[in-house]
Amino acid sequence: MTCRLCQEFLDDHASLLQTFGFIKWQKRQICQVCEATFSLIKTGCLGCGRNQDTQQLCYDCQRWQQQGKQLLNHQALYQYNDAMRQFMQQYKFNGDYALRAIFNHELIQKVQTIATDMVVPIPVSQHTMFTRGFNQTTGLIAGIKYQSILQVRTTQKSHQSQFNRQERLTREQIFTVKEGVSLQGKQILLIDDVYTTGNTLFHAADLLYELGAENVKSLSLAR
């Protein structure tokens, strides 16, 4: 077995306890050198998970609140540093789907610590499915039971002024929800690969709240 990122040979042995199944053995995916280039988020903003010294709401989150948004209590595992940027480049844009295995175990463990009725991944467009061939987010969380209820809206041009505010909000929506899904009173955990501005996740959350969700939280690999 070699490191999935640098192809160095992995010197990986199970300990005695692991061999006999007392401790679950997780096969190493990347070498220690590569592992050290990623930077875990230990404390972060309570609203968006941004890496900082305290859990205090950051400036961006205070602004979201002023706009009347319900914060997402977003959590992210890693900082979006150079190593993570390179990983995303290789995984998403070069399309090396095999790399989904690297953070899979950690993400599964994280999801299991969050109370939720429904795990919902952020979708990719049909065009992406026909070119990249996969949804990077569902790849990362493979093994977890999730519901792909969101779809990327196919864009349609229309005269914005004809609609009232409510209608306009729906028009601006980049997602739609599959028909026949009931979200009444549900606690939902949204999952994305990277949290950048928060726009994508707030769009999705707006829609889910509109359809009756009780609470929407979110999680990403990187922030």
Partner: peptide, 23 residues
Amino acid sequence: NEKLPNNHFYCQACLSLGRVSSH
């Protein structure tokens, strides 16, 4: 080849020069 969803796949051997997939 390495698997993609929906019975698609891509070539791992020449991946470093840009991916060739069944898409």
